[in-house]
């Protein structure tokens, strides 16, 4: 059975239908790259998976938990999320950002949470930055802290919404390398991205959203080489 199972999800904001019956299955260890034009519903779909948005019909399950029926906090302990704007807590150091949820939510001992945070910061290449405040870090470093923070809750699946889009070009790679490492360790990832090369090289599954629907999906290399629809063909050429 797939780890994340999205069945015929529909979602409207008032009169505007943004998701018009989306079905996607994502297996354990998959790296699903979601691409598509601005406004095609990529973020909304991602936000439905961890309950940041409610949807009107259809069903989403994550590791057997039905979104909407399962208690939100239980669901979110298994679903991590990283945002375009990092959203680090500015009054806490990098280490404290990573430690917060493990201590407050998972009730880990301070020392244990500290060890875990230190290990995760090291993993994302920020071993020396435990005591730095977000304002003292570059965008790429902040985003890596945000990844470490999400990983600290040991999620089953990690959602990433355009996590390199707010970065200066020269900082994009340091973040992508971290994501690639997670992928190689078998982490299940769902990424909304504009990094086509990354989607092709690291993704195990490509999902092209268009006007609130999954317009095309399949193996990234195949899809990029042979888009079946004019919309994807145009999107792929336009993106370069």
């Amino acid at each position: 059975m797939s780890l994340v199972d999205i069945q015929d999800v529909r979602k409207s904001f008032g009169p505007l239908e943004v998701l018009k019956g989306v079905s996607i299955e994502i297996g354990r260890g998959d790296v699903a790259a979601i691409i598509g034009r601005s406004g095609s519903g990529k973020s909304t779909l991602l936000r439905c998976i961890n309950g940041l948005e409610e949807f009107q019909s259809g069903a989403i399950s994550v590791d057997g938990m039905m979104v909407g029926k399962t208690d939100l906090r239980t669901l979110r302990r298994h679903v991590g999320m990283v945002f375009q704007q990092f959203n680090l807590f500015p009054h806490l150091t990098a280490g404290e950002n990573v430690m917060l949820a493990p201590t407050v939510v998972a009730k880990l001992q301070k020392g244990e949470a500290r060890d875990r945070a230190a290990a995760l910061l090291e993993k994302v290449g920020l071993a020396g930055k435990f005591d730095a405040y977000p304002s003292q870090l570059s965008g790429g470093q902040q985003q890596r802290v945000a990844i470490a923070r999400a990983l600290a809750m040991e999620p089953t699946v990690l959602l990433c919404d355009e996590i390199t889009s707010a970065l200066d070009p020269e900082l994009v790679n340091e973040v992508l390398r971290v994501v690639e490492q997670l992928a190689s360790e078998g982490m299940t990832l769902i990424l909304v991205t504009h990094e086509m090369r990354f989607a092709r090289d690291v993704g195990t599954k490509l999902i092209f959203m268009h006007q609130g629907r999954v317009h095309e999906e399949g193996a990234p290399k195949t899809l990029f080489a042979h888009p079946q629809t004019p919309e994807l063909a145009q999107f792929v050429t336009g993106a370069h």
């Binding site: 940041l52 302990r77 679903v79 945002f83 704007q85 959203n87 680090l88 917060l100 407050v104």
Partner: peptide
């Protein structure tokens, strides 16, 4: 306090009260 911080806290499975206490108040 940016809305994104509230969403980040929610995504970390923090309750509304925990979010208020640890994320919102000091900021």
């Amino acid at each position: 306090v940016p809305k994104g911080h509230l969403e980040a806290a929610a995504s970390l499975a923090m309750s509304r009260l925990e979010t208020f206490r640890y994320v919102v108040l000091k900021q």
